[in-house]
């Protein structure tokens, strides 16, 4: 299996703070890879480093066999790699209609037949053209996240970076968005790199995952390892227990 995204010994430093400390992962083409951890674990930082939004201090990042420069990314990169953000309320420009939002990537990459593509992208994420000329504040959280997914898909990337795409949504809406993401991945053979704090979501969506804590990878394991309890790190075990809910210790 060829590798879509690989990170080798990647370190990210913000001012004096080491957000990532020589982290290595390898994501195969067509794979769905999960990064789990709590806040400050560096899971989102790794995603942002790949996208070129975080300063890489040392280490190598490769996407589809091409080595990335620490800061700069060319346009071709962004046709291959797109990202969906956590907060659907913050990731859509408040003064632009959905139509305008979806036109922007097409204009940047000089893609023609914008009309057809926008209609088709909205259709693919299950919104339909009735939403096309609305502003983002006229949409619910779930609908906004669908728009964000449509925006990422419209340039036909092969890799999708997902930064907690459902953590700001209600549980029932989360299920709808997760189903949509799975469907899209199946239809287009996309590679997913997904960040979440929710073990349930990650094991549902991903076949391979890395558990992270304070900027390091604690453990690499497959989803089936996790389900069957083949865990080596205590921290992962703690997370497992915590995700099951509150347990009253008899006094």
């Amino acid at each position: 299996m060829s590798i879509a995204v690989s990170a080798r010994d990647v370190t990210v430093i913000y001012e004096d703070f080491k957000a990532l400390d020589s982290v290595s992962i390898a994501v195969g083409k067509g794979q769905s890879y999960g990064l789990v951890g709590e806040s400050g674990s560096g899971k989102s930082t790794l995603l942002r480093a790949i996208a070129g939004l975080a300063p890489v201090f040392s280490g190598t990042l490769e996407v589809n066999g091409r080595t990335l420069e620490p800061r700069r990314r060319d346009k071709a990169f962004y046709r291959d790699v797109q990202m969906v953000f956590q907060d659907p309320y913050g990731s859509l420009h408040p003064r632009q209609t959905i139509d305008r939002l979806l036109q922007e990537p097409l204009a940047i990459h000089g893609i023609s037949d914008a009309e057809a593509r926008i209609a088709w992208a909205l259709d693919e994420v299950g919104l339909g053209t009735g939403f096309r000329f609305r502003y983002s504040h006229q949409l619910s959280g779930g609908q906004r996240q669908r728009v964000a997914i449509a925006r990422a898909l419209i340039v036909e990337p092969s890799i999708l970076l997902l930064d907690e795409p459902t953590s700001a949504l209600d549980a029932s809406v989360q299920a709808e968005v997760l189903n949509l993401l799975e469907q899209i991945r199946r239809d287009r053979g996309l590679t997913f790199l997904m960040v979440s704090h929710d073990l349930g979501v990650v094991t549902h969506m991903c076949d391979q995952l890395a558990v992270m804590r304070s900027g390091r990878v604690v453990e690499h394991l497959s989803a089936s390892d996790l389900v069957e309890g083949r865990i080596t790190a205590d921290y992962t075990r703690n997370l497992m227990v915590a995700s099951k809910g509150f347990v009253r210790t008899p006094a």
Partner: peptide
């Protein structure tokens, strides 16, 4: 630093 600006950057603008 808003996500919607980051999103436009990620389109290669």
């Amino acid at each position: 630093n808003a996500d919607y600006i980051a999103a436009v950057r990620l389109m290669g603008a």
